[in-house]
């Protein structure tokens, strides 16, 4: 099982900084899309080294998981 972690900081002004951890490859973009739809507009986005690691089948499972729970 993979552990997905999200660190969220809501600033005093209400701006939201999100750090998605443990999600390899494009699967992290599924989380990013979900959170953007939930909160508002993207002001800035940075892809880190883990994004470029192989993702296996994590993205397909995650998309199904997030859709099923809607």
């Amino acid at each position: 099982m993979a552990q997905h972690e999200v660190e969220i900081e809501i600033t005093k002004k209400g701006e939201v900084k999100v750090h998605i951890k443990g999600v390899k490859g494009k699967a992290c973009l599924t989380y990013a899309k979900w959170l953007t739809e939930l909160i508002g507009k993207v002001k800035d986005q940075q892809l880190t080294s883990e994004y470029y690691e192989p993702e296996i089948k994590a993205r397909i499972d995650l998309e199904q998981n997030l859709k099923c729970e809607d």
């Binding site: 701006e15 939201v16 900084k17 959170l35 507009k41 883990e50």
Partner: peptide, 11 residues
């Protein structure tokens, strides 16, 4: 680390 996002809320 995967992604760092900064979001502006829309209420």
């Amino acid at each position: 680390m995967s992604t760092v996002l900064v979001l502006t809320p829309v209420i």
